[in-house]
Computed example of a mutant assay.
Amino acid sequence: MRSIGVVRSLLADRSEAPRQPDEDAPAAEIVLDDDVCPALVGIEPGDRIELLTWLHLADRSTLSTHPRGDASRPLTGVFATRSPDRPNPVGLHTVTVTAVLGNVVRVDGLEAVDGTPVIDIKPSLGGLGLR
C-alpha cells in the first residue's frame, strides 16, 4: 500500500477531531501526489466522494472501545464502531468537494487530522451522478 496524498486540515491532533463529519468537521484539503492528478478528471465541486485514509495515529492493538468515547456505555468491538483505533486503521470519509485546484481537492466534512495519509478516492454512491 502507498499513499496517494495527504490531508491538510486545521485539526492538529485526535483530541480536537469530531467523531463524525456532521459534528462541525472543518473544511480541509487533500494534497495529491502529482503522478495521480490525471485520476481527478471528472471530479467537480458539489460531488460527494469517499476518501480512504490510513489513520496513522490509531492504536492498532485496540479491539474494543466505549462508543463515542463515553465510558458510561458498554465496551463494544471496534468493528461495530467508527473508532479510528482498530487492527488495520483504514478511515472511510464521505465528503463534499468544494474545489479542485491542480493537485489539491478542497472538501467539507472531513474529520481526519492534518498529515493523515490518503490511500484512495472513490465516488460516493450517487455522488457523481451516473458518470
Rank of each mutant, 00 (worst) to 15 (best):
E29F: 03
A27V: 09
L101E: 15
I121C: 08
R86F: 06
P67H: 03
G91T: 02
T76I: 00
V104E: 03
F79D: 05
L10H: 08
R68K: 11
D108E: 14
A25S: 15
R19H: 11
G77L: 02
T65E: 12
P21M: 05
D34H: 11
V41T: 13
L125K: 11
P89K: 00
I4E: 07
R106A: 12
F79V: 10
V78P: 00
Q20L: 13
L57W: 15
L40V: 08
L11Q: 06
E44Y: 10
P84K: 01
H56C: 11
E111G: 08
L51R: 05
S124D: 11
L128G: 07
G102H: 01
G109A: 07
D108H: 13
P26D: 07
S64N: 08
A71W: 04
S9F: 04
R19G: 10
E50Q: 14
S124H: 14
L101H: 10
R60V: 15
R60D: 06
D47G: 05
S64L: 03
R106P: 01
R60I: 14
V90G: 03
N103S: 14
P21N: 12
L11C: 07
P87L: 04
R106I: 01
E50C: 12
R131Y: 09
L110W: 03
P26N: 08
H66K: 02
G109T: 08
S124R: 13
L110F: 09
L55S: 01
T65L: 07
L75P: 05
H93V: 03
G115H: 07
V113D: 05
V78G: 01
V97P: 02
L125H: 12
R68H: 11
L125C: 04
S83R: 00
A17K: 02
I119N: 00
G42R: 09
V31K: 07
V7F: 06
L110M: 12
R8N: 03
R68L: 12
L10E: 14
P117E: 07
P21G: 13
L125S: 12
L63V: 15
G46Y: 11
V7R: 02
T94R: 08
V31S: 02
R82C: 01
P18V: 10
P74E: 10
E44C: 10
K122R: 14
G109D: 03
G109R: 06
S15T: 14
L51V: 15
V113F: 03
H66W: 08
G46R: 10
I4H: 07
I4N: 04
L32I: 05
A71P: 15
P38Y: 10
L11S: 07
G91E: 04
G127H: 09
A80K: 12
P21I: 01
A80P: 00
S3E: 15
P89V: 06
N103G: 06
V105C: 01
L57M: 13
Q20T: 10
G77H: 05
D47I: 00
P84C: 02
V41R: 13
D13E: 14
H93F: 09
L101S: 13
C37V: 15
V113A: 13
V41I: 13
V113R: 06
K122Y: 04
R48D: 13
P84Q: 03
T98S: 14
E23G: 09
I49P: 06
S15G: 04
N103I: 04
G115L: 06
R19Y: 05
V97K: 02
P87C: 08
